[in-house]
Structures are given as structure tokens and as C-alpha cells.
């Protein structure tokens, strides 16, 4: 059953489990030591982590197809959250339907390892198809806004994220240490770790605001602390999960830390534009699904093309 998983991937999943256990113990201890303080959000957050990581690990261990379906479902939730958040036009209901219908196709190309189609389906074909469908309906008021926002959503929530899934179908022989699942784990773990690291460094040492108009809580200290920690971890993990050399893994770490930050503040800008604090309520303690995958919408395609160019 586990033939598609290498021992180091199993070990890495075990490591994540260990981190979760420690986080749960620490939060339980904090609650006991300071019964007067409110730790609800922290506890909810960790509980949501358990569920997310549980489903993700289950899919990874089960099979490659299950893992691809997992990412397809995340894309569906993200696109649905995005389309529920932004202004849409009544006339475009059927256009939105086609945008959703793109998700199974995109992940089917992944499953079939059809790289050429995977890489142009949304940027070329859907980019051309959806405005055409809008024109057939004939509503011209706010046409540009509708076509632009819809394509941005598809690129971010479906095209970008599907890169994480494409790691799964890359030739395993070129990455004997980790295989496809190893690269996925490397991407997801470092992206999420970077979020936490930037947050913790910012809380502990943050003074100078980095981008106050978009995200007032982000600081230079948090950002740089995150970049340093994430890059170091990227270099430590690379030989076990990826085909990257030491110098390459330095680049991968910087790419994930920097890309993760930008993905995060891009979704922050979207939320600020719309006027909401959280993108939804799907993940108690975190907010919506976009609040969790914001960094990944940048890191997934960036790391993928970095690794693909160098090794595949």
C-alpha cells in the first residue's frame, strides 16, 4: 500500500505529527498555568491543524490519485470562497459554472501527466473561453471587472495550486530520496512553517512595519526572521525529500520564504479591498480556506518551476 511513499516521507510525516503533539501539549499546559487567560483561538487553531494535517496525510498515504483529488478539492473550496466573497454578476451564473468545471479538467491533466495541457489550459483556453461565454450572454455592464476578477480567481485558486499536485506525478526516479510526495511535503511544510516562523519572529522582535497599508501587523523583523529560519530548514530537509543540491536548496528556501510572504499579503490586500477580516469561517481559529492557502498560491508555482527547470 505504501509503495509510492519513501521512508524519509514517512519520517517527515511523523515529524509533523510530533510537532502537532507538542503544540497540543503546550496549549493544554498554557491553559492550565493561566486559567484566567483566553486561549480559545489558539486551541481552535491547533484543532483545525489536526484536521487539515490528518486529511492531507491520509490522502498522501492512501495513493497518488487520492492526493491529486485532495488538491482538487482544496481548489474547489478556495474558488468557492473567492467567488462568494467578491462581487459577481447575476448574468454570469453560467460562466461561473464553467469556471468550476475547469477544476476537474485541470486536475485530470495532472493525473494524466499531460504537462503541455496542464500549463496552458487555464492561462490560454479558459482565458479565451470565459469572456466568450460572457459575450454570448450579452451583459456588458461591468464586463471587464467580471472577466478580470474571474480569471484572477482561476489563476490563483486553481492554476497556481494545481502545481502542488503536479509534483506528485513527476518522474520518481529523479528524486529517489522523496519521490513526488517528498516534494509536495517539502513545499507544504516549508510554506506553512514560514507563515508560523514569520508570525513568531514578528511577535517576539517586530518593530518596523514592512507594508502598513496592506497588513499593519507585518514587520521587517518577522519577515527576515522567517526568511532565515525557513531557508535553514529548507537546506536541512532538501537531501531527504528533494533532488536539490545544497546551493539549490538555499535558493528554494529563499523562494518559499519570499513567495510565501507575498502570497500572504496579496490575499490580505484582497480582503482589505472587500472589507472583511477573514475570508470565511471554514477553519476555526484560522478563518477561511484562503487565509490558510494564501502563501501557497505563490510558493506552489514558484517552487515547482524552480525544481522542474533544474531537475526534470
Amino acid at each position: 500500500m505504501l509503495s509510492h511513499i519513501t521512508p524519509s516521507v514517512l519520517a517527515a510525516l511523523g515529524g509533523v505529527l510530533g510537532i502537532l503533539v507538542v503544540a497540543s501539549l503546550v496549549s493544554a499546559l498554557l491553559k492550565r498555568l493561566h486559567p484566567d487567560k483566553n486561549y480559545t483561538e489558539l486551541i481552535q487553531r491547533i484543532r483545525s491543524w489536526w484536521i487539515m494535517i490528518g486529511i492531507f496525510s491520509g490522502a498522501i498515504l492512501l495513493s497518488r490519485t487520492a492526493s491529486i483529488l485532495f488538491f482538487a478539492f482544496v481548489s474547489f473550496l478556495a474558488l468557492k470562497e473567492y467567488l462568494s466573497l467578491i462581487p459577481t454578476r447575476r448574468a454570469d451564473r453560467r460562466v461561473l459554472f464553467w469556471a468550476y468545471a475547469a477544476i476537474p479538467f485541470q486536475y485530470y491533466w495532472v493525473h494524466e501527466q499531460w504537462y503541455g495541457m496542464f500549463i496552458i489550459f487555464i492561462p490560454v483556453y479558459l482565458f479565451l473561453l470565459l469572456p466568450m461565454r460572457m459575450v454570448i450572454i450579452g451583459e456588458t455592464k461591468d464586463f471587464l471587472r467580471a472577466a478580470g476578477t474571474l480569471h484572477w480567481g482561476l489563476m490563483t485558486m486553481v492554476f497556481s495550486l494545481s502545481h502542488a499536485a503536479f509534483f506528485l506525478v513527476l518522474d520518481g526516479a529523479r528524486n529517489p530520496a522523496g519521490g513526488g510526495a517528498g516534494l509536495v511535503l517539502y513545499l507544504i511544510f516549508l510554506t506553512q512553517f514560514n507563515d508560523v516562523a514569520q508570525y513568531v519572529w514578528g511577535k517576539l522582535t517586530g518593530r518596523h512595519k514592512i507594508i502598513p497599508k496592506v497588513s499593519p501587523n507585518k514587520t521587517w523583523e518577522g519577515f527576515l526572521g522567517g526568511v532565515g529560519t525557513t531557508t535553514a530548514l529548507a537546506m536541512i530537509l532538501a537531501p531527504h525529500l528533494t533532488p536539490l543540491t545544497l546551493v539549490e536548496s538555499l535558493g528554494a528556501g529563499l523562494l518559499i520564504a519570499l513567495g510565501g510572504f507575498i502570497g500572504d499579503v496579496t490575499i490580505s490586500a484582497l480582503k482589505r479591498d472587500i472589507g472583511v477580516k477573514d475570508s470565511g469561517s471554514l477553519l476555526p481559529g484560522h478563518g477561511g480556506i484562503l487565509d490558510r492557502i494564501d502563501s501557497l498560491t505563490y510558493t506552489a508555482p514558484l517552487l515547482f518551476h524552480f525544481v522542474y527547470y533544474l531537475h526534470y
Binding site: F76, K80, E81, L83, S84, R90, R93, R94, F97, Y100
Partner: peptide, 11 residues
Amino acid sequence: PKGEALLVPFF
């Protein structure tokens, strides 16, 4: 909505 048969997902 009323009068439509095609369901389009929204939260």
C-alpha cells in the same frame, strides 16, 4: 435562484 435549474456553488 427561482426559475433556474443549474446549481452554481456559493458559500
